[in-house]
């Protein structure tokens, strides 16, 4: 089986995928929103992945407790569905994310990655189906106008549908209906799920008989996730309330009727995220502190490659086929 897929080796420790001011603004609005809608009466609940109740507190952010499941290793926030819904409907947050500044910044910083991704997508679709064109694709939750434009105009797709996105376009659909698609892009959505198995079953129903699911998410075994805990700027309520482990993802996909074709962790930013917060690492985290205080940028890039190659980055990419 494919052990690793390094999407590319063009890693730089100083890279960022978002403007600092925008990032802080998104963070500020999210915190304000979470504190406003937070239901303090919520009680601990089992892991959304494996339903185990054996867990330890991993960190707490903005009054929301994150637990790490002792059975499957997933990380999850104690919250309710209506809190996630209210968070997603926050007009201030929506307004920022729809703004031209936000979209322009994402476009400028991510355009090369998006183009690389589409070439890779075309290659993988051909690899597993032998098809190069005329495909239908359902895109879940994509919130970047530039990325939507690139996918919707790509030669390989005869039809493109956008579902559950904050962006309203001519491709938007309000319901997935009964139509079946050759490919589904399901990026990061699982991170807001309290019932991932249900979501995977729904995805399977929307695929053609040999349709492919392209899945991306953060995973709980990733280097920055486990090292930074609550210091991680990229994990916050209710944007991420479920960070599954690689193992539970495999198990849930199989249970939902998917054949996993490949699993890789081509993430490029674990080391970057830890590097940014290196001075705040726990004082007993001796090796990590030593490495980040003394290693050259080249060594840190090499370390990121090691994480990618050995499935230890926190960004996971899965291709699965409907069985």
């Amino acid at each position: 089986m494919l052990k690793s897929f390094r999407l590319n080796d063009n890693i730089s420790i100083s890279d960022s995928i978002q403007d600092q001011t925008l990032s802080l603004e998104e963070w500020r609005i999210s915190e304000k929103t979470v504190k406003k809608i937070r239901n303090k009466e919520i009680r601990d609940h089992p892991c959304p992945g494996c339903h185990s109740s054996k867990s330890l507190v991993f960190f707490e952010k903005w009054g929301v407790k994150y637990l790490i499941c002792q059975d499957c290793g997933s990380i999850y926030a104690i919250c309710a569905q209506n809190e996630i819904n209210d968070f997603n409907k926050s007009t201030e947050l929506l307004s920022l994310r729809e703004s031209s500044n936000y979209q322009k910044d994402a476009f400028n910083r991510r355009i090369a990655t998006w183009k690389d991704f589409l070439e890779w997508l075309q290659f993988r679709i051909f690899r597993f189906t032998g098809k190069k064109a005329g495909l239908s694709v359902l895109d879940y939750g994509n919130r970047y106008v530039g990325f939507i434009e690139l996918i919707s105009h790509h030669d390989m797709f005869a039809s493109y549908s956008l579902y559950d996105s904050i962006i309203k376009t001519q491709y938007s659909i309000s319901s997935t209906g009964e139509k079946r698609y050759d490919a589904i892009l399901y990026f990061n959505k699982i991170q807001q799920s309290l019932n991932p198995l249900h979501d995977f079953l729904a995805l399977k129903d929307r695929l053609t008989s040999d349709g492919l699911l392209f899945f991306q998410s953060r995973v709980s075994s990733g280097f920055d996730i486990l090292t930074l805990r609550g210091l991680n700027d990229k994990i916050f309520p209710f944007e991420q309330i479920f960070i599954p482990s690689k193992e539970i993802l495999c198990s849930l996909l199989k249970e939902a009727g998917f054949e996993i074709l490949e699993i890789t962790t081509p993430g490029e930013l674990d080391v970057n995220y830890v590097y940014q917060r290196r001075k705040e690492l726990n004082s007993d985290n001796l090796f990590t502190r030593y490495m980040f205080n003394t290693a050259s940028p080249e060594t840190l890039v090499e370390f990121q490659r090691f994480l990618q190659k050995n499935s230890m980055s926190s960004f996971i990419q899965i291709i699965a086929r409907k069985r």
């Binding site: 089986m1 494919l2 052990k3 690793s4 897929f5 390094r6 999407l7 590319n8 080796d9 063009n10 090369a112 690389d116 890779w120 190659k309």
Partner: peptide
């Protein structure tokens, strides 16, 4: 040189751990 590195295009590598 869109990779930013003269003479070094962006590479993609795939490794395999099982002989099927």
């Amino acid at each position: 040189f869109t990779s930013g590195k003269m003479g070094n295009p962006i590479e993609t590598t795939m490794c395999f751990d099982k002989d099927s």
